[in-house]
Design a protein around this nucleic acid. Sequence first.
RNA 1: GGGGCCGUGGUGUAGCCCGGUUAACACGCCGGCCUGUCAAGCCGGAGAUCGCGGGUUCAAGUCCCGUCGGCCCCGCCA
Length: 587
Amino acid sequence: MRRSYYCGEVTAEQIGETVTLMGWVHRRRDHGGLVFVDLRDREGIVQILFGPEHGSDAYETARRMRSEYVIAVTGQVRRRPPGTENVHLKTGEVEVPAAEALILNEARTPVFPLDEERPVGEELRLTYRYLDLRRPSLQRNFRIRHQTSQVVRAFFDRHGFIEVETPALTRSTPEGARDYLVPSRLYPGHFFALPQSPQLFKQLLMVAGFDRYFQIVKCFRDEDLRADRQPEFTQIDVEMSFVDREDVLAMTEEMISTILREVRGVELDRPFPRLRYDEAVARYGLDKPDIRFEMFLVEVSDLFRGTAFRPFADALASGGQVKGIRVQGKTETFSRKMIDDLTEFVKGFGAKGLTPFRMTAEGLQSPVAKFLGPEALEGLVRRFELVAGDLVLAIGDNPAVVAESLGRLRVKLGVELGLIDKTLIRPVWVTDFPLLEYSEEEKRLVAVHHPFTAPMDEDLPLFESAPETMRAKAYDLVINGHELGGGSIRNHDRETQQKMFDALGFSAEQARERFGFLLEALEFGTPPHGGIAFGFDRLIMLLTGADSIREVIAFPKTQRVQCLMTGAPAAVDPVQLKELGLKPDFG
RNA sequence: GGGGCCGUGGUGUAGCCCGGUUAACACGCCGGCCUGUCAAGCCGGAGAUCGCGGGUUCAAGUCCCGUCGGCCCCGCCA
């Protein structure tokens, strides 16, 4: 027997044709004298009919079939009798009466049902991932993933980009995330690191004259997981020579638009809107704004300066600010309890409290109204253009806390109040990030993007005077509030790169030891260059509508970084350790 | 490192607050009947000592402590 069609391909076109199909028993309906089997493969489901008059051996075989048995069937495709068509199936006009049937393999009763999209515990799904992956919804996700990578490769090929593979075994770099380390057998005590990204290699490919590079590449970061983070993940990595920021943004904007068009049939408005980092933080509170809905943060510091409401007055006196967001027409839905819950929520981001103001027909009401003069209350009404039923939630604190807590609150309310049109896909570039920020933990400046990011030309003199105020030629692509990609123009001259290392507090020796090869490369004719990297898994989440990254990774790890199917990570034979010169000390 | 939710036949849940006989329901599974179903139907049956350990109690799925595991979040993720 040789398969002639996929199950899902059998339609009215094949009527009269004798076909051989192979696949899994999706469901069996045994009527005694007549047995229906829904036969499934990756392309879909087709109904097989087993009756003594079509094939008596086949009919007997069908009585032994069970869910997920692997079978082969031969029969002549025919139109279903009138009234028995199934409009829910692509193949629902036809059926295949089985003349011959073979059980290719039996199957244990599945540990969870595969024939419906009912919720199944994730622990089980991950333990039996090969069964989970058999289900239509995951099959669909990986089709989309495959299709997307094909679109990406075709796109870059069309635009003269060359895909170059970079090492998975490389050297550890001090900045950034925790590395996964691989011990070297030949050099005991020395380690490779799995790359957090191919950052330095792609820059060196520019030095090498490739001019336009891309790669769909695995990256590794040993940090704690989230719904959108796995320890190994895939990036679309891009680098270009002789370009400025506009070239990188235009090219990758076209890439994203092409993907959405070809994979989802969605046409994005172009050019993508842009926000500077400081605008994004001022209006949305976050550097990854979800611009599918408004509810902007509005500064009202001037209204509270010198008032008797101590929390705000104190915050302002110590250089802080007061901002609020307006929830339109929802006052009545906010109970005291809900305000309390929201207050707890913002406290998680450092806010000390959350102050509500309710606009009613009688005027603006608030638990703190008694501390405020009519100017402040009227000012709020005017500033927010309040009408009866509106609610304002305000926070006074230092600017970072105000931004973060109100920004997070804004997103939470957007989701919970249904203010977001989930069919929208709204990309936005966030540009002009700070170059450096002070790390309390390390007691020094660290790179906001990474240490190879070029500063804004006009900020170069600030290396000497106020490096923490410098802005970077860095940009992020944010879609629906998720950071999908980020990149920058790089330092291509050795002097600027050296200043950057100086600002980060690396000694000359440290810089040479860790990045000597890069500094040296910069002396051999490095073209101006820049690039970007996109989170491929997150992009697939967007395209599939998945709400967990595990739905778009074939064999993902649990939140505690284990593979429940293989049992990785696992202990190894002491002989292996000895060979690597490792002496375990699991204190 | 911290906070939260969850863990009960093969699967998904109820029961837990308010401790008390044979732990309930649906699906699945096994057997029987059944020639037009597609969540097939009807009849019958098997199957869980309630994640694990300890404690309180005459008595624990239920209360308490610990622990393991899954998920979500904070920290972390240049």
